[in-house]
Design a protein around this nucleic acid. Structure first.
Lengths: 140, 140
DNA sequence: CATAATGATACCACATTAGTATCATTTGTC
DNA sequence: GACAAATGATACTAATGTGGTATCATTATG
């Protein structure tokens, strides 16, 4: 199977955020309900709810309970970084370093494989670092 | 959880190959049994057997059945590429591209996120491309 | 023929991810 | 205040992938 850099959680979250950012630019300060998001984005409702609740807990969204309630962005799209979203759903970004980590390692020197993986991890982090919802919406 | 670039299968396989390559340079053409590998590398025996069988099927090892049998490298360590080993156990190397792959994508343009993931994938492939068992053994 | 090795294959266990269900709480409207 | 419409919290279930076992068949050597 393909190596996963983003999970479905993150994927859905980013899409929802993009949708909300796009709608907000048309209709200022509008609150958006789960119902609308589900209709527009076609995701399973209870799953999306859980995701939005997490985004709310992480203060990327602001929620309003009760009739007429819903969610809105807690800050401008240009200040919502996907690295933050990824961290919420996936924890800190890391590539696995398990290879040769055990003491059975056939050579005692610093492992070559490990160096390669570290380089990849560094590059990946750099690529993702500055990316925001705004940029994704604009295609940069 | 950490993003996995190499699975345990691959990890074990690479270690076994390294061990075999190291022993071969001392004692030319020696056949090595699962028993020896298990003793030296401390891996679960039936699991390692399955792994070696796959390496054999992929023609990285040559097996000899029957009493006095075992495995030996099918080619010099410098010609065994970890990309090949990875492919055997993990399939073709790919980062997930599921994000926005569906038609619900909020912007129709080529997706920015996707571009980033592709860049990471390219870099990773380049890093791993030339690496052989020999290099790992030597620490390069 | 016994023994020691691999070949083939089916099965099991555990963790993670994806998704569901339910009930509690809040808020607006009549 | 009652009702309806929204989220909060949380526990549960399902699907998948990875790691690992078990078993029997086959082959080669002495």
């Amino acid at each position: 199977m393909a190596t996963k850099i983003v999970t479905r959680n993150t994927d859905y979250a980013v899409r929802a955020l993009c949708y909300m950012a796009a709608r907000e630019s048309k209709e200022k300060g509008g609150i958006i309900t789960v119902t609308e998001l589900v209709k527009e984005l076609g995701m399973p409702r209870p799953f999306l709810r859980k995701i939005l609740q997490k985004l709310n807990a992480a203060e990327l969204l602001i929620s309003k309970k009760g009739k007429g309630g819903g969610f809105r962005l807690a800050r401008p799209a240009g200040k919502i970084f996907i690295t933050v979203v990824m961290e919420i759903f996936q924890g800190p970004f890391k590539l696995n370093d398990c290879m040769f980590k055990r003491k059975i390692c056939p050579n005692r020197k610093a492992c070559f494989m490990r160096k390669k993986l570290e380089a990849i991890e560094k590059f990946a982090a750099a690529q993702l670092k500055g990316v925001t919802i705004r940029e994704i919406l604009n295609g940069r």
